[in-house]
Design a protein around this nucleic acid. Sequence first.
DNA 1: TTAATAGTGTCTCTAAGACATTATTCC
DNA 2: GGAATAATGTCTTAGAGACACTATTAA
Lengths: 265, 265
Amino acid sequence: MNKQSTNSLFSLDYEKSIFNSEEFLKNVAVDNVIFGYHEKELKVLLLRPGGYSKWTVTGGYVKKTESIDEAAARVAITRTGLSNLFFQQFRSFGTPERVKDPELTPELFTERTGLQISASHWIFDYYVSVAFYTLTEFSLVTVNKGPYDEEIAWKAIDQLPDLMFDHKEIISEALKALRIHIYHYPVGYELLPEKFTLPEIHNLYETILGKSLDSRNFTRKLMATGILKKLSETRSIGAHRSPFLYKFDKKKYDAALKNGMFVAF
Amino acid sequence: MNKQSTNSLFSLDYEKSIFNSEEFLKNVAVDNVIFGYHEKELKVLLLRPGGYSKWTVTGGYVKKTESIDEAAARVAITRTGLSNLFFQQFRSFGTPERVKDPELTPELFTERTGLQISASHWIFDYYVSVAFYTLTEFSLVTVNKGPYDEEIAWKAIDQLPDLMFDHKEIISEALKALRIHIYHYPVGYELLPEKFTLPEIHNLYETILGKSLDSRNFTRKLMATGILKKLSETRSIGAHRSPFLYKFDKKKYDAALKNGMFVAF
DNA sequence: TTAATAGTGTCTCTAAGACATTATTCC
DNA sequence: GGAATAATGTCTTAGAGACACTATTAA
């Protein structure tokens, strides 16, 4: 669990080529706030680039041949190794001040990477971040560092370290968007095992919403959506009554994802 | 009403300079879907560039010194002459296919504008549009054509002409976003005269939502939000009972804009 | 039997939705 | 008086929210 590697999805040459190649759109990037859930904890995947004291959310540039959605998916796959994660665009951020940081100057950039890049290069202009959030079960993930990253780690959303640029605001807006999302769409398919218990999904909702929910009302309302199927199996959890297992009714789940639903928790 | 002019906010030299200057961010633009309401009609402000058969929503590039919000506001001010309009970012659009149009090729571009621009220039790469919508009362507006625009006009949202690129989808998403917005925030300050009647705001809501609302329930729910103040004056409307005039309670209106509210119409 | 957790039913109260009559104005 | 529009009250019903007891398991 919580494995970490610097893997072959990254190469130094590849990263270096970004700044000079004609492969990428200029002045645009995607940021992807990767939320990880595991046993009542909601965390976010953060990086600390080498030589910096501050952390960043995962992100990347957009290739001229791919859409912004594809770029966000590529970021998630590169960092987590998992494809087909649920992700959602929620806002774009763009102000001239947003990429100003005393630790990121052309001089320090050169010092850090060994690359000679003119101070008038477009990467020192401000860029617009199209921001997404992604949901995953973090115990399934082997996180991948890039060559310029000193650390990559899951951080609890209520104990965030110092963040670079406006990334604190981006995370806070991502969480707001997720909390609105959860009232209008089903959540959980990527966050729970295939078979799970009512207390497990109850905990998931409480964790994401950051508040406790009455179990009787929660169950009544969740079952009323029709997205769950009760199985006849139970899970043994020691010296306690064994909870029943449930599965998502994938057809109804997908229909609810597409058409929306409303549950007032 | 519905005036039109080519005014000094535009100049040909200025427009030409966009493509070569270092003043703008590359591969990013803002699109601003300007909705205009007047007497039970919801319209959108569209342009038809000279030499094209298709129409576009208003938009523009982003200066390196301004935020995307400022760019969207600048677009609205330039086109309508009005400042302080309500506007809202709702989504960003970015796929390699989105700016492909058989009428927009480097050759045709040169033919149309007389500008020699290399086919590898960044304006022929795809760009990401950060999309906003703006609300205004269209009888107050004097619309402004740019030097490359052959026509500018308000078009009813259910009778849109052929639109360039993905602008049909952008308008459709803007309308969806506006309809969700109207359930969570007050709407009307920029769309109604200072003093207005209940039937007038009732029509506004019916027009935006595209459905009829029971007047008794509508009044009850709208008054329950507290954003309206009933005046003792009435408006004379001919051989009918004179409706009372109302004003927005600006303090409560702004608080509701900031904190959100919920009204299920 | 005890300790821990799972599972579930009922009451109250608010508010959404459906619905029709009276009031005002001017001709 | 008639024609047009404004204004408003009540009933029903669905569901949100508050609340507590019984069932199961294994030590």
